[in-house]
Every structure is written in C-alpha cells, then in structure tokens.
Amino acid sequence: MKLKRQQQGLTFVGLVVVGVLLALAGLVAAQVFPTYLEYMAVQKAVNKASGGSTVAEVRDLFDKAATIDDIRTITAKDLTVGKEGDRVVVSFDYVREIHLAGPAWLVMKYKGRSK
C-alpha cells in the first residue's frame, strides 16, 4: 500500500504575508539608504577637512566639500576640531530620525572622526 505524499509549499495567505513583510522592509531600507550615503559623504568631507591647520580653515574646507556633496544634515559649526600630537583631528556625531508610522520612529546615530 502506497502512502500519499502530502503537498508542501506556501499557501496564498502565507505568500501575501511574506510579500507585505518584504514590502515594509523595502520601504524602511529605501528611507535608511540615503542617510547612510550622506554619512559616507560626511566622513569623506571630514577627512578632507582634517588637512587644514586652523579651526577656521578646517571649517571652510568642510563647508566646500559639503556644498559639493550636498550635505545638509551637519554643518561646519557642528564639527569638533582638536589636535592629537601634531595631527588635526575632526570628529562629528549627529542623529537622523525617520518617521515610520503613528508614534513609531527609527532613530539612527551617526558618529565618526577623521583618519
């Protein structure tokens, strides 16, 4: 006597649930990705700005790089400029908030320093 094999797979309802979850993850990723790209641009601008020798020069270099890369989240006055030995070190930190739905927000904290 042969046993019947039970079919395996995804039901239509399961497919819809998986599709909705993937769509929501895609929406969140579409909002997060530009903030990460901006963070990378800020890091690049900070590395360029650390070539300055005075605080004013560092801020001016950052402003020029920020204009080119269209950085709007952080300005030169938000930078912390210091020295480690004979090297100029520029650091930054800022927060980006993305509204998800109702009272839910996604908060991302970006932090970095020049190399």
Rank of each mutant, 00 (worst) to 15 (best):
M1Q: 11
M1C: 10
M1F: 12
K2F: 12
K2P: 13
L3N: 14
L3A: 15
K4F: 15
K4T: 15
K4S: 15
R5G: 13
R5V: 15
R5S: 15
Q6K: 14
Q8C: 01
Q8P: 00
G9H: 09
L10W: 09
T11V: 05
T11H: 00
F12S: 06
F12E: 03
F12G: 02
L15C: 11
V16L: 15
V16H: 07
V17A: 12
V18E: 04
V18R: 03
G19I: 07
G19N: 07
G19Q: 06
A25H: 00
A25L: 14
A25P: 03
A25I: 11
G26D: 00
G26T: 10
L27G: 14
V28C: 14
A29C: 14
Q31P: 01
Q31F: 06
V32C: 05
V32S: 08
V32E: 02
P34L: 05
L37S: 13
L37M: 13
L37H: 11
E38P: 13
E38Q: 15
Y39I: 05
M40C: 06
V42F: 10
V42D: 08
V42S: 11
V42R: 01
Q43R: 12
Q43P: 03
K44V: 04
K44Q: 10
A45E: 05
A45R: 00
K48M: 09
A49K: 07
A49H: 05
A49E: 04
S50R: 10
G51I: 02
G51R: 09
G52H: 01
G52T: 04
S53R: 09
T54I: 02
V55E: 15
V55I: 09
A56N: 08
E57N: 02
E57V: 04
R59G: 08
R59P: 11
D60Q: 08
L61F: 09
F62C: 13
F62R: 00
D63K: 00
A65Y: 07
A65I: 14
A66W: 06
I68S: 10
I71C: 05
R72V: 07
R72N: 12
T73V: 12
T75I: 08
A76W: 02
K77P: 04
L79Q: 01
T80F: 04
V81I: 00
V81S: 02
G82P: 08
G82F: 06
K83T: 11
E84N: 02
E84V: 14
G85L: 00
G85C: 01
R87L: 12
R87C: 05
R87D: 14
V89S: 00
V89Q: 00
V90N: 04
V90S: 03
S91D: 11
F92K: 03
F92M: 06
D93W: 01
Y94D: 06
V95G: 00
V95N: 03
R96K: 15
R96V: 13
R96F: 01
E97W: 05
E97C: 04
E97S: 13
E97G: 03
H99K: 14
H99E: 06
L100S: 02
L100D: 10
A101T: 13
G102F: 08
P103L: 08
P103S: 11
A104C: 07
A104S: 09
W105F: 08
W105T: 11
L106H: 08
M108R: 07
K109N: 12
Y110E: 01
S114M: 11
K115S: 13
K115A: 14
K115Q: 14
